[in-house]
């Protein structure tokens, strides 16, 4: 669906992206995380065909952003980190304009506006001025504008920033619904804890590069994420785990590992037995909510140590 190959982007005076390559599969929610200034927004803007890369390519549905930016625009919705609304216009007019601006005919625009408003829970506020909405409701309106034409790809830059916990929960639900409807979403975020609620893969961007060189699987409904710790370090842990059925290693070293295991309690018991049987001194083996954060900091910290 979205393929980036050796993407390089330069600002005057510094290189923002250093040969980034990645692939985003259809009907997934991919989270882009990383410190401020890491290049997340530039990456999203390149994907949205709003910026022309210095080198490399971005293709969406096989269309190159350099060759066919307008065709790509028709296929995607984009919510920038600092977005604006026409504050004087009502919610209805904002959405009607967004629908018409995305090529929906005047006869269908009213229906599309109503549908988008209903989707984000703004159906009862259609006549309210956009400027009179709260932060959370403005965010919803902005998302409704981005999805009014039912794009195949939705790019969201820090959509949860400034939202209260309830609005964040609603946002997570909305993103999952959109994915269920067939959209491919790429969401940039700082809030790691919430990524698990909606995203299936996490890409850590650090200093203009993909940290670790690849995406990290965040959540798989059929595979629990487990943290394994050893009382005594063992160099063969990663290789051993990789050979076990149903296991996907997210990160591993001699002292422990973060992995996903396809299956339920019996498979978990079988893996534990295999580990113990192979001589690994297992001191902890359980689901770990903080694991994602650990991976993030491990990747970003290792990036900071680079010269």
């Amino acid at each position: 669906m979205i393929v980036l190959r050796d993407l390089v982007f330069d600002y005057p005076g510094h290189r923002a992206l250093h040969g980034v390559s990645l692939r985003v599969e259809p009907r997934t929610i991919t989270a882009l995380v990383g410190p401020n200034g890491a290049g997340k927004t530039t990456l999203l803007r390149c994907m949205a065909a709003l910026e022309t890369p210095y080198a490399g390519s971005v293709t969406i549905d096989g269309l190159d952003t350099r060759e066919a930016p307008r065709a790509i625009h028709a296929r995607l919705g984009y919510l920038p980190d600092f977005f604006g609304l026409y504050d004087v216009l009502s919610v209805r007019r904002c959405l009607h304009y967004a629908a018409r601006a995305h090529g929906i005919g005047s006869a269908q625009a009213a229906g599309a506006a109503e549908a988008a408003a209903a989707r984000v829970g703004l159906a009862d506020r259609m006549e309210q001025a956009a400027g009179a909405l709260s932060r959370g409701l403005r965010q919803r309106l902005a998302i409704a504008q981005a999805i009014v034409h039912q794009p195949a790809v939705l790019l969201l830059d820090e959509p949860a920033a400034g939202l209260d916990p309830r609005a964040r929960r609603d946002l997570s639900r909305l993103l999952l619904e959109l994915r269920a409807d067939g959209m491919t979403l790429v969401v940039s975020s700082h809030i790691l804890a919430e990524l698990e609620d909606y995203s299936s893969r996490m890409i850590i961007v650090d200093q203009g590069r993909i940290a670790g060189g690849q995406a990290i699987t965040v959540r798989d409904a059929a595979a629990a994420r487990l943290r394994l710790s050893l009382a005594a370090p063992h160099d063969g842990l990663a290789d051993f785990l990789a050979r076990q059925p149903g296991v996907t290693v997210i990160a591993a070293d001699a002292a422990g590992a973060l992995l996903t295991l396809r299956g339920d309690a019996p498979e978990r018991a079988a893996l534990l037995a295999a580990l113990v049987g192979a001589g690994f001194a297992v001191s902890a083996f359980a689901e770990d909510a903080r694991a994602l954060e650990d991976v993030y900091f491990a990747q970003v910290t290792s990036g900071e140590r680079k010269p």
Partner: peptide, 14 residues
Amino acid sequence: EIRERTWDGQKLSS
């Protein structure tokens, strides 16, 4: 449009 941060939305329109 640029000042009010709505220009990106317009650039992405049809």
